[in-house]
Write a protein that binds this DNA or RNA. Structure first.
Lengths: 358, 358
DNA sequence: TTGTAGGCGTTATCAC
DNA sequence: GTGATAACGCCTACAA
């Protein structure tokens, strides 16, 4: 028995397909009783309502928006920043009955069609899923505006919302002043007398990769290059930049362990995100170093765990960021389409006067 | 200028639409140079590759799977259990290049078509989004097998994966023995001499709703009725069941506050999930009651925060649950399609001998 | 290796 | 209030 469609149902009822469609989409276009009859026999004959794919094609709208959280989808869920952001997006989506599509940016398998990739799949990012996703708009969290996925979105003609400040007046974004945030942290530390500072950053490597020190050439490719630039400006000197892998406490811990095993320990450690800083705190505690007595620690973003740990950090309204992005995703008309969110330094218990360099 | 499609591109190149399609989906079906030429002019003319909707309709596959996390989508992200589960699902999805669709189960807005809802939208669940979602399979976390969304999935003919044990041999599920888990906790408490026990449960109410006590009639509708039944069996007596709202520490805290304000305080509090139990711990600590000296606390699931808080709880492999569900979602052939995961009681620091009832 | 033709299921438009 | 018709954009036999 073939699958039931509008046509079949229409035939069975002796009405036209258009009327079936109306029964589902425009109840006011037909008599209540006919509609009732249609819905009843639909149930009876097992017609599940308009097919999603056909509907999407015809209407040119999927009632779904995409969100790209980070290079590795499965990592995103261990990042409280991503989760709080997603909470905000979902609140808006929920209000509008819109679904959220989370796409992978990589696929280990060789993909069915024997690698049917177009040109721009540089640096390991496989944007196939972005190309195939049934979405009306796409948001990228903490990914560069020139990321391949952004190109795909533009080519496909779907709205793009980023979390980076962009010059293009037609672009949609919700961002903070990352450079300013870096300056804030830098000035705070300088005021406390810190001169010897290490910065923990994330890379796309899995946690557990060997810790490595980044040189200047690497830094431009960082997701938060602007934060580093801000730090540098305020510190007016060299900073050591190291990474233990992707954004996670494990990476922060690994990088910090590496640091502490050297002959000279910095007086302050800055995590470019809170989870990196929290990882640093864990290691410092387990090694018996007092914070901020011997080492100061500072983060970025102010996720809820940061407050719980009394971590000094740069506050930004993460959930609101998500809500703004959600609004821009869901409603093409919504204004303004460029939002700069306020930030502030939350000085808590992990920063203090610089200790004599060890 | 009209949007570029296979047809347009084919015309521009003087080849047939089929060849364009092949260039993207079957590189081996045409000469490398022709493919090169096609991809090049595609770029030039701004053809973004095969349209997702058309492709989905034609192939009958969306390369996306749906996940329903709880009644309210935006609540799900504050639930570590849901997040760990989602991590597992996403790991598998990522391996296969499959997207994950998160659908809302409610919409405050009256929806465009003036409420074009079919019959089964009882109890406030609006499954419109599930009906319209472009997905090949649907998973439901901690939602009853007879939930309206499940009906929709079955009617649509898409694979359904639940986290409830089902008798139907054709069904796909990944579950634990919830009744057994309840028994475990109950026996543990009884062995410690506890007789006066309160159980914290979640309801669909927002946190902040007035705390209410549930009677027997309410309990069957609970998501985890089996856990309560198991507890009851082991305790062989009455238990007081109360709720402070949806699954969150706030709800657990509110319910516990309510409990402590009564004349008689139970010797043990059981949270039907860890976050509820953690909420209880917070309140007990702030009120200066010692745990487990004066009150014992116990949870379910063993999310990572439970371990950190030294909470006694029933362990289940949450991420593995997600991975199994992911496997069933992604691969219709995958066997076995019914998985019972092992559980164990993790006795930690929050349960001890019963204190004299206060 | 390339082209032709048909239909996937729906809904907007317009006539009745 | 209801029905006929024509796309929406693509993929897959099959034929050449």
């Amino acid at each position: 028995m073939a699958r039931m469609t509008v046509k079949g149902l229409a035939a069975a009822l002796g009405v036209s397909p258009a009327t079936i469609s109306n029964a589902y989409n425009r109840p006011d276009q037909l008599s209540a009783q006919l509609r009732e009859r249609i819905l009843a026999t639909a149930e009876e004959l097992g017609y599940p309502g308009p097919d999603a794919a056909g509907r999407t094609l015809r209407r040119g709208r999927a009632d779904a928006v995409g969100v790209l959280l980070s290079e590795r989808l499965s990592y995103a869920f261990s990042d409280p920043f991503a989760i709080e952001f997603l909470t905000g997006v979902s609140e808006i989506a929920e209000e509008h009955g819109i679904s959220i599509v989370l796409m992978p940016l990589s696929s280990k398998t060789v993909s069915t069609g024997t690698g049917a990739l177009s040109s721009n799949d540089t640096d390991g990012s496989d944007v196939t899923a972005v190309r195939h996703a049934n979405i009306d708009a796409l948001a990228m969290l903490s990914l560069p505006t020139d990321h391949p996925a952004a190109m795909v979105a533009r080519a496909r003609g779907i709205r793009l919302v980023t979390t980076d400040i962009s010059r293009d007046p037609d672009s949609s974004w919700v961002a903070i002043d990352d450079f300013g945030a870096g300056v804030m942290v830098g000035e705070h530390l300088v005021a406390l007398g810190h001169r010897d500072i290490a910065v923990l950053v994330e890379t796309n490597q899995p946690a557990g990769s060997p810790v490595r020190r980044l040189d200047d050439a690497d830094i431009d490719f960082l997701d938060y290059a602007a934060r580093v630039a801000g730090l540098r400006k305020a510190l007016a000197g060299e900073v050591m930049i190291i990474s233990g892998g992707h954004n996670s406490t494990e990476s922060g811990a690994a990088a910090t362990s590496w640091l502490l095993d050297r002959d000279r320990i910095p007086t302050a450690i800055v995590g470019l995100s809170d989870v990196l800083a929290l990882g640093a705190l864990q290691v410092l505690a387990s090694r018996g170093l007092s914070v901020p007595g011997e080492v100061s620690v500072c983060g970025f973003d102010d996720v809820s765990a940061a407050d719980a740990a009394r971590l000094t950090t740069v506050h930004q309204p993460i959930r609101d960021k998500g809500r703004h992005v959600g609004r821009l995703l869901v409603d093409p008309q919504s204004q303004p389409r460029q939002v700069l969110l306020p930030i502030s330094l939350a000085v808590r218990a992990t920063t203090g006067p610089a200790h004599e360099s060890l």
